[in-house]
Simulated assay, not measured.
Amino acid sequence: MRTSWLGVAAILSTAGPAMALDKVSFGTNWLAEAEHGGFYQAVVDGTYAKYGLDVTIVPGGPQANNGLLLPAGKIDFYMGGNMISAFAAVEQNIPTLVVAAFFQKDPQCVLSHPGVGHDTFASLKGAPIFLGKEALASFYAWMVSAYGFSENDVKPYTYNTAPFIADKTAVQQGYATSEPYAVEQQASFKPNVFLLADQGFSTYATTIEARLDTVTQHPDLVQRFIDASAVGWYHYLYGDNHAANAAIKKDNPDITDAEIAFAIETMKHYGIVDSGDTKSLGIGAMTDGRQKDFYDEMAKAGAVPAGLDYKKAYTLQFVNKKVGLDLLPKP
């Protein structure tokens, strides 16, 4: 039986023996990295434990498919990418929904070479652009619909930056937290970075997905996981994150301190985690208005079906409670 949060709080505040923590498994969608830092922070600094949780992070990666483990009941929560996959779950009658969004801005970006006439987002139209297959059906469909880009300019992206570096006229997809750093290290120049969120691609990202039965049968568990994760993100961004970064490196030995530092600085610079609605509602915030705006844009682009009951993709039940706002650094 799940323990209520009020019960856990009472137990943890006494000197008596503590009740066993609720075990929770959380699957990420990629190898451990700074973009997962708040969750690692909540593990290593005891925040999850304070909320009565024993959380195991199950890293994703190229050989993992944690997204399938959630509806199969093998994990309790899953880190989604953006809302497109959540809309697809509604279309396919998959019994999951988004319960929080820890990135207010999707880190998805496009890169260009500086000083060759591609220094504004509008100027990128007509340039050869390296894109993966998933990009064509998601953010590039939006770029075509909203800004008039063309699929005729697309070249296949194999997640190798060398072709982009070699062609000064080219554009490439990327994540603001990683590819710009890789290009700078490999080619010794800073590319132009156009964050699609700042151009109107209004999806939430790094969402938390749960099964419908978990939400309906164990809402207290969901609430504690979301609240503790929010606190973890405040501590990771604004406090001492050394132990969390060490845990990230333990799960992903190939990542470097420099890569972690770049990602953290980028998340802060663009307000990827903490901006907009989070300033008044707390990290993890979502609103109906943002969800409707993104759904409408993607339906117009043909990336999701028109007439979909998109509100079945998410719930605001567990967010917008101002958890952690008191942890913000004082001006």
Rank of each mutant, 00 (worst) to 15 (best):
A18G: 06
F103Q: 12
P114W: 02
F39R: 10
V110D: 00
P114H: 04
F87V: 09
V110L: 04
G38I: 07
L12H: 13
Y48F: 11
T14S: 15
I84G: 13
G81C: 08
A88Y: 10
Q41K: 08
G115A: 02
G115K: 03
L68D: 15
I57C: 09
I84P: 09
A72L: 10
V43F: 02
H113I: 02
E35H: 05
L21T: 11
N82P: 02
I75V: 13
G67L: 06
G61M: 03
W30Q: 12
K74I: 11
G73C: 06
G60F: 03
V44P: 00
H36W: 13
G52H: 02
L70M: 09
E35V: 12
Q41C: 04
T14D: 14
F26A: 07
Y40H: 12
Y51E: 11
A32W: 05
E33F: 14
S4E: 13
V58L: 07
V55A: 02
E35G: 12
R2M: 08
N93K: 15
D76N: 13
F26V: 09
Q108G: 10
G67C: 07
M83K: 07
M83G: 05
A18F: 10
S4Q: 05
D76F: 06
V110C: 05
P62H: 04
V44H: 01
K74W: 01
A15D: 15
F39W: 14
H113L: 06
K23I: 13
G16P: 00
R2C: 01
C109Q: 04
V58H: 01
A88I: 10
T3G: 01
G115F: 04
W5P: 10
S25L: 09
S4Y: 06
G73P: 08
V98L: 02
M79H: 12
F102W: 05
C109P: 00
S85Y: 03
Q63A: 15
V99K: 13
S4C: 04
N65S: 14
D54T: 07
A88C: 04
G60T: 09
V110R: 01
G46Y: 00
T14C: 08
K105T: 01
A42V: 00
A49Y: 00
V43S: 03
L70E: 05
T47M: 00
Y40I: 05
L111I: 01
R2Q: 08
N65W: 08
M19V: 14
P59V: 03
V55Q: 07
I84T: 15
G52F: 03
A88S: 15
L68C: 06
N29K: 14
V8L: 09
K74S: 10
Y51W: 12
G60P: 08
D54F: 03
N66R: 09
E35S: 13
P107F: 02
V98T: 15
E35R: 12
